[in-house]
Write a protein that binds this DNA or RNA. Structure first.
Lengths: 247, 247
DNA sequence: CGGAACATTGACGATAATCAAAGCGAGTGG
DNA sequence: CCACTCGCTTTGATTATCGTCAATGTTCCG
């Protein structure tokens, strides 16, 4: 089985064999770690960034009042490359949500790889685009979808993202290591509310979730509920047209 | 007055004079456009990306039910470079919120600039980092802060971002072209609720806002309310330590 | 002056949070 | 092997933040 991070970058840009070689080189000496461990924190400095090889992790922020918001679920092949710049006050942590295997890649290492090969640079920029677009969709979900739709959306997103990872999905079922507390912290809800909405999804026969295994029974309906894959573009005119925007 | 986009990139990486030259070249022939106009939409294709030179714009998504969520306020110097990849179902639009001047930069143009000069590539990656970190903080705000704190946070963020743009802030006051409807669509609230929380901020003497001009009277308190600039790192152990995470 | 867009206010309703307790299940130690 | 425990899930009762609906006011502009 090949490295999911390298595999990911291959889908994001047309890499040469030499590029793949270089990247594989950067990913050797992986480490294993249990659930609920910190992979990356302030004390790690910013000389390396983590890449998840297997298992799930999350970026999160903790607030004064003890509130916690997960800003990004990290699946195999995901990196914390586009973290806040070193001088930023905002620095997120990376925690494992299940047992994980990960590597730390030196920023210097990837920098010189980028300098040496522009497809790698392009792949990293495209990776950034992807992250950005996921983050945007989270903003939309949390900002404008109710709890039920939001949960449906996240499940759709995970199903979609895992689909790109070989062996992660079998017959619309996949491992789902999140506790309901974690789930709540992704969705911006309370665990209690998550529990209730989860029941609702189960009782509708759309999914089942038992012992950390998510089975989607009715993907089409799940997507309909979530409004997944259908960002609606407003009716309107093209660039620099001075007509008023639609209501 | 120099180009705010080039200026921005200069702060993000150590550019050579030649780099600045190249970038200025890419930014010639700006266009002017009124408020509530589309700067970028599906029909524009993805050959160019817009950069705001003056005025405010926004990236947003529209949902089936008519809901709208702004995912990013774009201030002078902001680009829509890190948009969703061309094959993504998710494509956001860019609308102006005030009269704007902007340029369209060809992706091909910036690509070759990046190929020719690695500091430009680094600057663009750092720009992506910045976007990413703002998006993350939006997720945290919308997910875990109540309406009052959230509004305070956004004002702090804008004050901070505008501070990097020369001439944008005078004595903690700045132009604020958003209607309460726009404001609501950034915050994930209803206009009515925005109105009420705005009153609350005004009556506390912390800000005033009249005729599209925001004046911050008590920045320190605003930041306290928002929890701005204080991402709390959890207590815990360093990398790959197998000790349990704190509760 | 008239109109349209925007802001404000009030009454009411609904979604989600809070508080609290009980149930379940997997791993541990006696 | 069974009781125990700890973490997680489930349920109920209550509260509150925020949304909805609707009307009135205000400002800006042609």
């Amino acid at each position: 089985m090949s490295n999911p991070f390298v595999q990911r970058l291959e889908t994001l840009s047309r890499l040469q064999d030499a590029d793949v070689q270089t990247l594989e080189e950067l990913c050797k000496s992986p480490r294993d770690i249990g659930a609920k461990q910190y992979v990356f924190r302030e004390s790690s400095g910013s000389a390396w960034f983590p890449v998840i090889i297997s298992g799930w992790a999350a970026r999160h922020q903790i607030l004064r009042n003890g509130g916690r918001q997960i800003t990004r679920l990290m699946l195999p092949g995901d990196a914390y490359y586009f973290d806040a710049p070193p001088d930023s006050a905002l620095r997120e942590e990376v925690v494992t949500l299940s047992a994980c295997r990960f590597v730390l890649i030196a920023h210097a290492g990837i920098e010189s790889a980028i300098k040496a090969s522009s497809p790698i640079g392009e792949a990293m920029r495209n990776y950034g685009r992807m992250e950005n677009s996921i983050l945007s969709s989270m903003v939309v979900s949390i900002g404008r979808r109710d709890a039920f739709e939001r949960m449906a959306y996240l499940i759709c997103e995970l199903h979609f993202r895992l689909g790109a990872i070989e062996g992660a999905i079998q017959d619309d079922a996949f491992d789902f290591p999140l506790t309901q507390d974690d789930f709540a912290d992704v969705l911006g809800l309370t665990p209690v509310h998550v529990n209730r909405k989860l029941q609702q999804l189960r009782q509708s026969g759309i999914i089942s979730l038992r012992s950390k295994r998510m089975q989607i029974h009715d993907l089409a309906q799940l997507r309909r509920i979530a409004g997944f894959g259908s960002a609606y573009l407003t009716q309107g005119r093209v660039l620099a047209d001075r007509s008023p925007a639609p209501a």
